[in-house]
Amino acid sequence: MLGSSYFELKGRVAVVLGGPDGVSAAVCRMLAERGARVAVVGPDEARLADLVDELRWGGAEAIGILAEETGAATMDAVRLGVLAELGRPDLLFVLPCPSPSGGGWQRTVDSGLTATFQALQAFLPGMTEAGVGAVVTLAPYGPDPATNAVGGGVTALTRHYALLVADAGVRANVVSWTPRESTVDDAAFAALYLASDAAASMTATTLDVRGTSMRW
């Protein structure tokens, strides 16, 4: 049985991309409880502030970084902001969740798959240079083709980068998830596990928390 020390993240810098609700918010709370320094990134300034205040109230060191647009320049600015305020990131969580109301093909793919690619491009070079780091991505699946395309694309993309950076001491894994409120904490804990020392030998792996039923 793994001891609790495997899940301790005291002093580590974690970047959580995905906004201040859903899986990303649950991940932020779990990281804060385990001593990580948390940078939460999202497009809603008021809700970001509320989550950061909550984390700080609990004793965590946390910052919010507003990112209203996706794009390589935005991700580079986020990375520089984290470096300036918290230091070099040890953990990266890319957890964009599709809107329940949908957003059309292009918007869903851009906010999920393309944004994940841009985040990996921005943060992985620093991790490989340092020779340490863990990345967790979220692969969503749902009733529409765009969400499923994002899920499959994120899984393949993460595996590609995991194999690319493995020799540099950096790991990258995926949580496969069907958006349901009842499984938010399950997805968040799976992400935390993959980022922790408990999963130190795991990379290019997908943990499926979608459950046995494929009905939406």
Rank of each mutant, 00 (worst) to 15 (best):
V136R: 09
S5F: 14
T128M: 11
W57A: 12
M30E: 14
S196G: 14
P20V: 05
W177A: 07
V23P: 01
Q106I: 05
A146W: 00
A77V: 10
G151E: 05
V23F: 04
G112A: 08
G11N: 06
Y141L: 13
D110P: 02
D197Y: 15
S213M: 12
E8S: 13
W177K: 08
V184P: 09
T128F: 03
A204C: 14
N148H: 02
T137G: 14
S176R: 15
V170G: 02
L157K: 01
A73F: 03
V52G: 04
P140H: 05
G19N: 01
P96L: 09
A204I: 14
L120H: 02
T155I: 10
V27P: 00
L91N: 01
D185L: 13
T137V: 15
P98W: 07
F117V: 09
T212D: 07
V38Q: 05
S213H: 13
A134V: 08
P143Q: 06
R37M: 10
A49P: 02
A62P: 05
G3M: 02
D110C: 10
G3C: 03
R56V: 11
G64K: 07
M202P: 00
F7H: 06
G42T: 01
M30Y: 11
V78K: 05
E33K: 13
Y6R: 14
S213G: 11
L194F: 11
L66E: 00
Y193V: 11
T183F: 07
T212M: 10
E68S: 10
A195N: 05
G131Y: 12
T114I: 14
S24R: 04
S24V: 08
D110W: 10
G64A: 12
R215F: 13
G151P: 11
M127C: 08
A190V: 12
A67Y: 05
V209L: 04
L83Y: 10
D110I: 12
P20R: 04
V82H: 08
R210D: 10
G87S: 07
T203D: 05
V38D: 04
L138V: 13
A39V: 06
Q106K: 00
V23G: 02
A149P: 02
P143D: 12
A134Q: 09
T158V: 13
L86W: 04
A168F: 10
T147I: 12
A26W: 09
R37K: 15
D185Q: 09
A49M: 04
A115E: 01
P20A: 08
A60W: 05
E85Q: 13
T128S: 09
D186C: 15
L120G: 02
A67E: 09
K10L: 15
I65K: 02
T183Q: 04
T147S: 03
P98H: 04
S201D: 13
V170F: 02
S176W: 12
V40E: 00
A130I: 13
E129S: 12
M75K: 03
A166L: 11
A162V: 04
E8H: 11
P145F: 02
L9N: 08
L66W: 03
T108N: 06
R34F: 04
A195M: 11
T158L: 11
L48R: 05
R88Q: 11
S196I: 15
V23M: 03
G81P: 09
P100H: 11
D44Y: 05
G102A: 08
D186Q: 15
P96H: 12
D44H: 04
T212F: 13
G142L: 03
W57L: 11
T137S: 15
L91M: 06
V150K: 00
L80C: 07
L113D: 05
G87P: 02
L120Y: 07
G22P: 09
G211M: 12
